[in-house]
């Protein structure tokens, strides 16, 4: 069954067909963003809450554009995610949203599993905009779309994720999505930033960036999560750049034309060189464009259809739009 179900929590439990459906649906939505009037009425009258327990300008704006371009009504809620803070618990937040008959919730939360937790408790559609270190499915999807646009396919491509894999939900979503669509996945970074058992997920492991560059068709360079590092996983940013930075010099050694991606925001001069970010290998801005289209596709596919109403609308004459 290809239909997506009520929520989009992650890519781990989606089938390859479901992922392809989302990517294929995103294509026509790219065209909508090119129109003079960037709006279609598909989600008119739907209420969507962007519930962000962690600050994020980029993802939230992307979702907001996606929602507005589908003519939905959107509300942004910036809430505190700290478990120590006295305040409304996640369960109470869920119940309040339900009571207000919100149609869809887009949530970002600092705890892994929070999106599924919410989805299990409210009838609204829940879209995971990033839960702890678990998954960031729309980022994974837009990365897949960008790769597919650039290379015409995903199967058989060698894609290497570079950087702080340990703390990265983007990495996990990418690993699931790429594996399901038949890519070979690699990871590269210091051991201190690599999660235990990562090879058992079917990825190859590189300890030097030079090896990764030699192997890959695509590099997906992850942001070094300064705010997440609870203490000394690397000695300094300068050392990280020296040893693992994706620099123009290193790219020049690549045996083939590498595509360079980054989920943003970039730490220029830490994980990636400005010349690379702005250079001909980079598809970073395409990722941003694709982000809105992918999010529109997800919202469109999840937005409640109620087939029983269609049946009722048919009536004795046999209706339907023609």
């Amino acid at each position: 069954m290809t239909a997506l179900g009520k929520d989009l929590i992650g890519l781990e439990h989606l089938s390859a067909d479901q992922i392809r459906l989302i990517l294929d649906t995103a294509e026509p939505f790219k065209e909508v963003s090119e129109r003079p009037i960037k709006k279609v009425p598909a989600l008119r009258g739907k209420t969507i809450v962007n519930l962000f327990f962690e600050s994020s300008t980029r993802t939230r704006i992307s979702f907001e554009f996606a929602e507005k371009r589908l003519s939905a009504d959107t509300v942004n809620v910036a809430a505190s995610g700290s478990s120590v803070q006295k305040g409304e618990t996640l369960v109470d937040t869920a119940r309040n949203l339900e009571a207000m008959r919100i149609d869809m919730v887009v949530m970002r939360h600092p705890s892994s599993g929070a999106a599924g937790f919410l989805g299990d408790r409210i009838r609204s559609n829940v879209i995971n905009a990033g839960d702890g270190k678990h998954e960031h499915p729309t980022q994974g999807l837009l990365d897949l779309l960008t790769i597919r646009d650039k290379h015409g396919k995903i199967e058989g491509l060698k894609v290497c994720l570079v950087g702080d894999i340990l703390h990265s939900r983007v990495a996990r979503s990418n690993i699931w999505g790429l594996s399901k669509l038949g890519a070979e996945v690699g990871v590269c970074g210091p051991d201190t930033l690599m999660p235990r058992g990562i090879e058992e997920l079917g990825v190859c492991r590189f300890r030097r960036i030079e090896e990764a560059i030699e192997w890959a068709d695509v590099l997906n360079v992850l942001r070094l999560q300064l705010e997440r590092m609870e203490g000394g996983f690397i000695p300094s940013l300068r050392e990280y750049y020296r040893v693992f930075g994706v620099t123009a010099e290193r790219l020049a050694q690549a045996p083939r034309e590498l595509t360079v991606m980054h989920p943003g925001p970039m730490n220029r001069g830490v994980e990636i060189d400005s010349r690379v970010a702005d250079g001909k290998h980079s598809v970073i801005l395409d990722q941003v464009t694709n982000g809105v289209a992918v999010r529109m596709a997800v919202l469109y596919l999840l937005a409640g259809g109620r087939p029983e109403l269609a049946e009722a609308a048919k009536g004795p004459a046999g209706g339907g739009p023609e």
């Binding site: 065209e31 009258g45 937005a303 087939p307």
Partner: peptide, 23 residues
């Protein structure tokens, strides 16, 4: 012209129909 996104019955169909090209 693909009119899928402008249909007046989008709220009642599910799963969603495939959207074709508009140019």
């Amino acid at each position: 012209l693909d009119i899928t996104l402008y249909r007046d019955d989008l709220q009642t169909v599910g799963p969603k129909p495939v959207i074709g090209e508009t140019r």
